[in-house]
């Protein structure tokens, strides 16, 4: 039962994430799921969530395979690196992780496109990276809250 509820939660999350990405172009909403999975420290769940996020982002994207994989691996490094220095609930920790992930989004997308001689709109990429960095904290809070509600229901059951 708990497993089914967990799977249902993640399915709903990915559905909402894909719809949100179709409305706000160029922004990674699935990253929030990866952060939530990192916080929960369940290796199997984390592996599935990262694999699903990579396949969805790479499949629907227009760049050759590579940047999503690199981005999520570095998201893990940034997350653990930040947690070694700050509390996970600390505002500065959340701010630092968001800013770094926004910057990494810009660097990796530009690097992979440039490696394949594809021309990208730098201004648009920059704006999207800033929006990405600004959106992470509130969405992270929201997803954390919803996940917490789901956990409470799980415990009651």
């Amino acid at each position: 039962m708990r497993l089914a509820r967990n799977i249902a939660w993640w399915l709903c999350f990915f559905l909402a994430g894909v719809y949100a990405q179709s409305i706000l172009s160029g922004i990674d909403f699935l990253l929030i799921g990866v952060i939530i999975a990192l916080q929960e420290r369940r290796p199997v769940q984390l592996a599935w969530v990262i694999l699903a996020a990579i396949l969805l982002q790479e499949g629907v994207g227009t760049l050759p395979f590579g940047s999503a994989l690199l981005f999520y691996v570095f998201a893990i490094i940034v997350f653990y690196g930040g947690r070694a220095l700050f509390e996970a609930e600390n505002f500065f920790f959340i701010f630092l992780v968001s800013a770094l992930l926004g910057l990494l989004h810009f660097i990796f997308t530009f690097a992979i496109a440039d490696l394949h001689s594809l021309h990208t709109d730098i201004t648009r990429l920059g704006v999207e990276s800033v929006i990405q960095a600004l959106l992470i904290p509130p969405l992270w809070r929201l997803a954390y809250f919803l996940r917490g509600k789901e956990k409470e229901n799980e415990n009651r059951a």
């Binding site: 894909v18 990405q21 179709s22 172009s25 160029g26 922004i27 990674d28 699935l30 969805l56 982002q57 790479e58 629907v60 994207g61 227009t62 760049l63 940047s67 999503a68 981005f71 989004h105 997308t109 496109a113 594809l118 990208t120 709109d121 990429l125 999207e128 990405q132």
Partner: peptide, 15 residues
């Protein structure tokens, strides 16, 4: 059915 979706959709495209 969709325009640019996700961070890897760096090029102007539709689905």
């Amino acid at each position: 059915i969709g325009t640019r979706i996700g961070p890897q959709a760096a090029l102007n495209s539709v689905i």
